[in-house]
Simulated assay, not measured.
Amino acid sequence: MKPRMNFAKASQEAYKAVLELENYVQKSGLERHFIHLIKLRASIINHCAYCIDMHVKESRHDGLSEQWINLMSAWEESPVYDEKERALLTWVDAVTRVADTHVPESAYDAVKAHFTEEEMMKITVAIGAINVWNRLCVGFRAMHPLDQPAKAA
């Protein structure tokens, strides 16, 4: 796959606006592991290799377990996620797939049972932000860096 263009350079003004939204999310007061959950799950749904690579590494760096990270693509089948995380994952799935799901009441009820309205707003903005990044990276074919292969002992 070949990158289509460098979107950060194509419109520095637009890129700055997206960065400002990202900065808001980072400073919003949401727990770090919830931000990782949102970014990683939405990126998996959107098939954004660049963002998946980045958010797996960030999640690992912040101490989230390999199992927690690795099972994100099949979260519904795994008991590794607690009730609050499962409600959040339900919301991320519904909001990211809005054209298909129309964000059903069941998803709203699940997230509302665990989060305040203020938190729900911040969570939904975070979902929107990662979906913007995913669309930029997938649309313009941003390439993630390739890790160096491990050397034999």
Rank of each mutant, 00 (worst) to 15 (best):
R4K: 14
R4G: 08
R4Y: 13
R4W: 07
R4E: 06
M5Y: 07
M5D: 08
M5L: 14
N6C: 09
N6R: 12
N6D: 15
N6H: 11
N6G: 09
N6E: 10
F7L: 14
F7R: 14
F7V: 14
F7T: 15
F7P: 07
F7C: 10
A8S: 14
A8Y: 15
A8G: 12
A10K: 13
S11I: 04
S11L: 05
Q12D: 07
Q12Y: 07
Q12M: 12
Q12S: 12
E13V: 14
E13Q: 14
Y15V: 02
K16N: 13
K16L: 13
A17K: 13
A17N: 11
V18S: 05
V18Q: 10
L19H: 13
L19G: 09
L19W: 08
L21Y: 01
L21K: 07
L21S: 13
E22V: 14
N23V: 01
N23H: 15
N23W: 07
N23L: 08
Y24G: 11
Y24M: 11
Y24C: 10
Q26V: 07
Q26S: 13
Q26G: 11
K27M: 08
K27N: 15
K27P: 02
S28H: 05
S28E: 04
S28M: 06
G29R: 05
L30G: 04
L30P: 00
E31P: 05
E31G: 02
E31M: 04
E31Q: 12
R32P: 07
H33T: 10
H33A: 08
F34Y: 13
F34H: 11
F34I: 01
F34Q: 07
I35Y: 00
I35S: 06
I35F: 00
I35H: 00
H36Y: 05
H36L: 01
L37M: 07
L37A: 06
L37D: 01
I38K: 04
I38R: 03
I38E: 07
I38C: 08
K39G: 04
K39N: 14
K39C: 09
K39F: 08
L40V: 04
R41F: 06
R41T: 05
R41L: 05
R41V: 04
R41C: 03
A42Y: 00
A42R: 03
S43V: 05
S43I: 03
S43D: 03
I44G: 01
I44W: 02
I44M: 04
I44C: 01
I44Y: 02
